[in-house]
Design a protein around this nucleic acid. Structure first.
Lengths: 225, 225
DNA sequence: TTTAAAGATTGTATTTCTTACACTATCTTA
DNA sequence: TAAGATAGTGTAAGAAATACAATCTTTAAA
């Protein structure tokens, strides 16, 4: 804090933008919204908006998430704050980016969507995005990959019941590399985070896989900076 | 971005605050500045202040760093953005916290300091701080510890020439645990970041230690999210 | 000058973790 | 009942991490 009270010029606006990832069709997806106004009208952008007077940044991000997906209680973490003076042509806007992981089951609960305005785009084939949102998604991807290797956030992308092969598929999709099946399963089981349920997958034209569930709240375990 | 243009109420102010760490007297220090105005007059606080109109967040943090320490080209990374509505009693202020590591040699270059207004406080025995700055320092400490274990940022805290024992001391001071001398040295040397100089420490009442220098710009190597 | 004190320097054996690798089991459909 | 598809499982070799103690070099004191 300085001696001078408050700003030295026009006040910047503060927004939050949320990079919402999910897994769908064996692909990593990002939620995008089509802009209906200038600037960047008709381009795709991340869901986001201004923070309210008496709302924390995290609450603002949760609100945006709820607005766009209709789900709450999902994994959300602050990503990075982007504040270059040129990032918005209208005015100085500082945006606090968050990244969220949602379970496939939670997709599409919100039915009011006008589908032409909202899409789950492949994180690997993104269209041109408004503002510096491409940079934000790129950064989120880096963070996601990193977290996947060194923490257990990955489980946030799984449905309630899942097979070990599904877990492996998610890792392979996001990290873009293959793992040995035996070693992978060994490691996942050693973590002690999943336990076998009594159910098995049905209606598949091969030996059905056992379904697993998470054995604890894994919130604590994720916690790494 | 939303359809509504700009804010839904009073605009928040945006500040940067910088947690500047260094090693001094075998202790991890944080730079604090005594507040001369309300609120929290006479309490210690992190160096920081409002961002300028046409200045990026990073540039603002660099400016603050330069103002307070007189040094530049030092390790600086964005830490986290704190934006709880209650964090400043005067108005809504969102602050982007940075953390910086400076080399002992760089301390005290700035001579204009009124020493009663500025101090290097032990990170382990901090006084009561203004605003939510205790929380910010705590977060920075977590990040620093983490980075020290998994990256090579630690070398940013070393003087130009250093002994391997100094490196170990820094690690032990920050991580609060002891390492085996042989294993520690082996690991440091295997990294390939340091090379022995022809000099040795002088005027010590025991076998003098060899001095090492960094062998590359380590900026690249640090890069992890 | 000799000796004690203080920290510097060095290598090996053990354990733990990581990786590589291939066959059998179970279900559906033809 | 055979073929196709994926599930499920163990072991050996190599790499990395850990545990551990004696000798070296200097200054200061006896």
């Amino acid at each position: 804090m300085e001696k001078k009270e408050f700003s030295e010029g026009a006040l910047p606006s503060v927004t939050v933008d949320v990079v919402i990832f999910t897994i769908k069709d064996d692909d990593l997806k990002v939620l995008l919204i089509k802009r209906s106004i200038e600037p960047f009208k008709d381009l795709w952008a991340l869901p986001g908006g201004f923070i309210k007077d008496s709302e924390s940044l995290e609450k603002a991000a949760e609100r945006k998430l709820m607005d766009e997906t209709g789900v709450k209680d999902i994994y959300l973490e602050q990503l990075y704050t982007f504040g270059s003076p040129e990032r918005d042509p209208r005015a100085r806007i500082v945006t606090v980016a968050y990244f969220a992981l949602i379970k496939p089951r939670d997709i599409g609960h919100k039915k009011k969507w006008d589908v032409s305005d909202v899409q789950w785009a492949s994180a690997y084939k993104l269209p041109k995005l408004a503002f510096d949102h491409s940079k934000i998604v790129e950064y989120a991807l880096k963070r996601l990959r990193w977290k996947l290797e060194y923490t257990t956030v990955g489980f946030q992308l799984l449905p309630e019941k899942f097979t070990l092969t599904q877990v492996q598929d998610i890792y392979e999709t996001i990290l873009g590399k293959k793992f040995d099946k035996r070693n992978f399963r060994k490691k996942i089981l050693e973590l002690g985070l999943v336990k076998p349920s009594r159910e098995i997958l049905k209606d598949v034209a091969h030996r059905p896989a056992r379904l697993y569930t998470l054995s604890k709240k894994i919130g604590d375990i994720i916690e790494i900076i």
